[in-house]
Design a binder for these strands. Structure first.
Lengths: 155, 155
DNA sequence: TATTGTTATACTCTATAACTATA
DNA sequence: TATAGTTATAGAGTATAACAATA
């Protein structure tokens, strides 16, 4: 038992908690860091009215003109039924446009509009700033190490 | 423009996407890794009928006997109104019990029951295995580095 | 006045099933 | 048959407001 561990019925009468047990799990640390970063991202991106997923969607459309909904679903990790409203919002804001797929009559290719391209450029700068802000206590070398280790988990 | 960048209307006709733009953001990598780890955790922990937050709650009660709801809210990062149902479930399963706070008549201290202690012991082993499984491509040194960098973000 | 715990409520995110048009 | 896109719906997770009891 760690020296900091409390004895019975003591916790509520102190203002310090023993969090060593839960912080020993990698999943806990990754989740806490993820929430901290995303919270900051959402706050920073709010003026542009983009959420994390809609920013990712816009970026993917920008980098992959003509990308289809089903391709986006795989990359975003969401169900096709949940992508509909997301795409519709961006269509209504005229940030993206749909054009018939050249070979598949069922599919529609997605493209950035000029307005979408302009907003994405601004949003990318904000996202980069938000990244630096949330990881302000890391050196550039540590940031690169972090991303390298994270990719070994999810790729 | 990177060599892998697609030209217009090409993306939908290929099976490879340019994800370099979005993967350059730290927030994206952290979120993807977080989702991968939590997905594995939920699947592994399902037989014990514990979710990530309820496991964390149980661990905190185990390490801090007599901890109050308001203390849990701060540590779990959730609203007190949302904690009520969570605590009630664990009370109904008789994994935790409430006892009056020794000094504050408004508060109730939470404690593990014998059944709660038994389940938590088993769940901790499962959580540790899930951690190792999700980070199977990392060395032990890399795991420690990862947690150290993550804590510099959220602590 | 402020805080603990609670109810009610709403909004977002996510998951499943069923449907249509086309392949 | 299988797939792309859509609708409807239900379940989590999360946020705010209002309240009773106690500090």
């Amino acid at each position: 038992m760690p020296a900091t561990r409390k004895t019975a019925a003591e916790a509520a009468t102190t203002d310090t908690l023993d969090t060593g047990g839960i912080e020993g799990f990698i999943g806990y640390s990754v989740r806490r860091a993820s929430l901290a970063i995303i919270e900051n991202f959402i706050r920073r991106m709010a003026p542009l009215e983009l959420r994390p997923v809609s920013f990712t969607l816009l970026t993917l459309v920008g980098d992959n003109p003509g990308i289809t909904s089903s391709q986006l679903c795989v990359q975003l990790g969401i169900q096709s039924s949940n992508l509909v409203a997301l795409v519709k919002q961006l269509l209504d804001r005229e940030l993206i446009a749909r054009r018939p797929h050249p070979k598949d009559g069922r599919a529609m290719g997605l493209h950035l509009t000029p307005a979408g391209r302009t907003l994405l450029k601004k949003a990318s700068e904000v996202a980069h700033q938000a990244d630096l802000e949330a990881t302000g206590r890391l050196t550039e070398a540590e940031r690169q190490t972090l991303v390298r280790l994270l990719k070994k988990i999810y790729l």
